[in-house]
Simulated assay, not measured.
Amino acid sequence: MTSDFQRIQSLPTWLLGRVAARGRGMVADAIAAEGLKLMHHAVLAATAEYGPVTQADLGRRLAVDPKDMVGILNHLQEQGLVLRSPHPSDRRKNAVTVTSEGVAVLLRCGALAEVANAELLAPLTPDEGKQLMALLTRLQGAAESPA
């Protein structure tokens, strides 16, 4: 007879959550070498992709509370990774742009994250890794589609 805990541990949601937590931890540890946390990295990446972008737009895109976004941007600006200046079309808002140092840090963090992800997937063959990514991408796509 299986216990309730054994049943829980066999659920895909449990397994995905445990693997995701391990992967997030591995990436967080890797990018800590650059002085960043996961959310700093996400904000820096979004700024590089969408900048110049308002603080409010960054918050909406990443589902970050405005007060938390201010703290994250303060840290990134103190490190010289982003600049905040009046938005060209609405001077009441701040536009956030990534600096050249921010781009360099983002590239280094990307390389560190790749190594961490390769370590996470190391128990799998290359074909199994590709299959896992295809399946996870399909599940993610289904989760984003209206039911």
Rank of each mutant, 00 (worst) to 15 (best):
G110D: 12
G35R: 02
V70C: 05
D4L: 11
R61P: 00
P12N: 15
L16S: 06
G129V: 01
R84H: 01
A116N: 14
E49G: 03
T47Y: 01
Q55L: 02
N74L: 04
L135K: 13
L83A: 09
A134R: 14
V27D: 05
A95F: 09
A111G: 09
P126Y: 07
L135E: 12
H75Q: 08
I8L: 15
A45W: 03
A142L: 10
A143V: 04
A134M: 09
Y50T: 06
R18F: 09
K37H: 03
T47E: 05
E144S: 13
V27A: 15
R138M: 14
T99H: 12
D4W: 04
V98P: 01
T54D: 10
L112W: 08
E34R: 13
S89T: 12
V115P: 04
H75Y: 01
A42E: 10
G17E: 01
G102T: 02
P123N: 15
P126F: 06
S85F: 07
A116K: 13
G71F: 06
P126N: 07
L83F: 02
P123L: 15
Q9K: 08
L120N: 03
V82H: 12
H87G: 11
A21I: 07
T125I: 05
L11E: 13
A42F: 00
Q77V: 01
S10D: 04
V82I: 07
V82M: 11
L107M: 11
Q6F: 00
N94P: 00
V115T: 05
P66Y: 02
R108F: 06
W14L: 00
R91H: 05
S100A: 09
L121P: 04
I72E: 01
L135R: 11
V105E: 00
S145A: 14
A33K: 12
L62Y: 08
A45R: 13
A30E: 11
V103E: 14
D65Q: 08
P52T: 02
L112R: 08
D90K: 03
L132D: 06
S145R: 15
M39E: 12
D68A: 11
R18C: 10
T99E: 10
R92A: 15
R22N: 05
G23N: 07
P146M: 05
A95L: 07
D90F: 01
L15S: 11
E34T: 07
K67Q: 07
L112A: 14
E78A: 05
Y50L: 09
R91M: 15
A63I: 02
V70R: 01
E34F: 00
I31G: 11
D57A: 13
A20C: 05
D127W: 03
S85P: 02
G80M: 10
E128G: 09
T99S: 13
A56S: 12
G25N: 08
M69V: 07
A63G: 07
A143W: 03
G17C: 03
E78F: 13
V70I: 14
P66M: 05
R92I: 01
C109A: 13
L11D: 11
S145E: 14
R91S: 12
C109I: 06
